[in-house]
Design a protein around this nucleic acid. Structure first.
Ligand SMILES: [Mn+2]
Ligand SMILES: [Mn+2]
Ligand SMILES: [Zn+2]
Ligand SMILES: [Zn+2]
Lengths: 135, 135
DNA sequence: CAAGAACCTTAGAATCGTTCTAAGTATTTG
DNA sequence: CAAATACTTAGAACGATTCTAAGGTTCTTG
C-alpha cells in the first residue's frame, strides 16, 4: 500500500468478496469521501471517469452484493429507479422531486410517536420517512 | 340510471375526463367499496373479470390520468413497480415486504416531531412514512 | 339529430432499468 | 505453478411502462 486511503481489500474480504480491480475501484468511488446516494448509471459514469473500465453489469452486480453485505442500503423513492446509499446508519431522507436529488437527515432529531402495532404475524423491519419537496 | 351506485360520469367530467366506457368501468372497480391499493396489472385483471374489455395501455393511461386529477395517489414502496392508492387523504403505510401487501394507517394517530427545515429553495410537498414489516 | 372536431382506445412496437447467460479472465489455494 | 473457484462482460432477455399511429367514441354546435 502506497497511499493513505482506506484498505478496501480488507473490507471486501471481510464481506466475503474477492477484492477484484473492479470492486476496489467501485468501493473507492463510493466510500472515499462523505456519504453518497448513487444510481447504477451515475456510479457507472463516475467509475468510467477514473479510467478503470467496469461494465454496467458489474456495477449492478456490485451494488447488489454491497447491499446484501450491509455496506450499502437501497432507498426507494421514485418509480423505476433504485438509489443506493452509503450511509447505512439510522437516518431519513429529503427527496427533491423536481430534480431527483436525495439528502440525508439524522433520525435522532426526529420523533415518531403513535405508530400502530404491525399487522398480525409480522415483525418490524424498518421505518422510512421520506420528506418530498420541490423547487 | 337504474342502480344505486355513485355516478362516476359526474366525477370524471369534473376531473376534465370524458366518461368513456373504459374509464367508468375502471372507476367502478377502484372506487366502489373501500379504499384500494392496486397495480396496473392487478387492476387490469380485475376489470377484465367484469367482462368489460380494457387494454393494459388504457389501464396505464387511466391510472396516470386519475393520479394527475387527484383521484388517486401513487405510492412508491418497492423498486420496479408502482402502486396506486384510492385513499388520497393524509395517511401512511405498512408494507409487508415478504408478500408485497400495502396497508393504510391513519396519520392523525402519528406524530412526527423535529423534522428539519426543507433544503434552501424548496417547499414541502408531502411526508411519506413507510413502515416495512416482514412475516 | 346530423356532421365535424376533439378526444379516446388499442395492438404492437419501443424504451428503460435491471437481470440473465455463457464464455473468457482474474484471484485464490495448495 | 496448476487446479479450483470466483468474477467480469457482451449481449440477449426481461418486466414494467410508454409511445405510435390508426380506427372508434364522445362532444359540440346548429
Ligand atoms: Mn436490486
Ligand atoms: Mn407513472
Ligand atoms: Zn441516505
Ligand atoms: Zn394507502
Amino acid at each position: 500500500m502506497t497511499g493513505n486511503s482506506p484498505d478496501f481489500t480488507v473490507s471486501l474480504r471481510a464481506a466475503g468478496l474477492r477484492p477484484t480491480r473492479q470492486r476496489v475501484a467501485l468501493a473507492r468511488v463510493l466510500f472515499e469521501g462523505g456519504h453518497r446516494h448513487v444510481t447504477a448509471e451515475s456510479l457507472h459514469a463516475e467509475v468510467k471517469a477514473t479510467r478503470m473500465p467496469v461494465s454496467l453489469a458489474t456495477v449492478y452486480n456490485t451494488l447488489n452484493q454491497f447491499r446484501d453485505a450491509g455496506l450499502l442500503r437501497e432507498v426507494v423513492v421514485a418509480p423505476g429507479r433504485s438509489y443506493f446509499d452509503t450511509n447505512t446508519g439510522h437516518h431519513h431522507h429529503f427527496f427533491v422531486e423536481t430534480d431527483g436529488e436525495l439528502h440525508d437527515f439524522p433520525s435522532d432529531e426526529v420523533t415518531i410517536a403513535g405508530l400502530p402495532a404491525p399487522p398480525e404475524g409480522t415483525k418490524l423491519s424498518r421505518v422510512d420517512v421520506i420528506v418530498r419537496v420541490r423547487r
